[in-house]
Amino acid sequence: MKQFSSTELANRTGDVLAAAAQRPVTIAKHGKARFVVLTTEQFEAMQRGLDTRRSVHVSELDDAEASALISALQDSIEND
């Protein structure tokens, strides 16, 4: 998840909102994540339980899931 400082939020509001339009972003205060900014659609989907994300330990991933995770991480490193 992309993170902005509270100072960046004050000085670059447009950039923060543009990033949040793509995916949720965290706002950090004194280096620690304190808030999350997300679209209303994302928030409403969470409220309705439509968010299908889940958490698992990496040892529980099958080969296809592990490959998908590695690809997503590489994409994030290269593009964020």
Rank of each mutant, 00 (worst) to 15 (best):
residue 1 M to T: 08
residue 2 K to T: 05
residue 6 S to V: 15
residue 6 S to G: 10
residue 6 S to K: 14
residue 9 L to F: 04
residue 10 A to K: 13
residue 10 A to V: 06
residue 10 A to T: 01
residue 11 N to L: 05
residue 12 R to S: 05
residue 12 R to V: 02
residue 15 D to G: 05
residue 15 D to Y: 09
residue 15 D to F: 09
residue 17 L to T: 02
residue 19 A to I: 03
residue 20 A to T: 00
residue 20 A to C: 03
residue 21 A to P: 02
residue 21 A to T: 02
residue 23 R to F: 06
residue 24 P to N: 02
residue 24 P to F: 01
residue 26 T to R: 02
residue 28 A to C: 08
residue 29 K to T: 11
residue 29 K to H: 10
residue 30 H to A: 15
residue 30 H to V: 07
residue 32 K to W: 06
residue 33 A to S: 10
residue 33 A to G: 12
residue 34 R to K: 13
residue 35 F to I: 03
residue 35 F to S: 06
residue 36 V to G: 06
residue 38 L to E: 04
residue 38 L to P: 02
residue 39 T to I: 00
residue 40 T to A: 10
residue 40 T to R: 07
residue 40 T to F: 06
residue 41 E to Q: 01
residue 41 E to F: 01
residue 43 F to S: 00
residue 43 F to P: 00
residue 44 E to K: 03
residue 46 M to C: 08
residue 48 R to I: 05
residue 48 R to M: 08
residue 48 R to H: 09
residue 50 L to V: 01
residue 50 L to R: 06
residue 51 D to A: 14
residue 52 T to V: 10
residue 52 T to E: 09
residue 53 R to E: 06
residue 53 R to W: 09
residue 53 R to S: 15
residue 54 R to E: 14
residue 55 S to K: 08
residue 57 H to K: 10
residue 57 H to M: 13
residue 58 V to C: 06
residue 58 V to K: 13
residue 59 S to P: 03
residue 60 E to T: 14
residue 61 L to K: 11
residue 61 L to V: 05
residue 62 D to G: 11
residue 63 D to G: 06
residue 63 D to R: 15
residue 66 A to P: 10
residue 66 A to V: 05
residue 70 I to N: 10
residue 72 A to N: 05
residue 73 L to H: 08
residue 73 L to Q: 08
residue 75 D to L: 12
residue 75 D to Q: 14
residue 76 S to C: 14
residue 77 I to N: 00
residue 77 I to F: 04
residue 78 E to P: 04
residue 78 E to T: 12
residue 78 E to R: 06
residue 79 N to R: 10
residue 80 D to E: 12
residue 80 D to K: 08
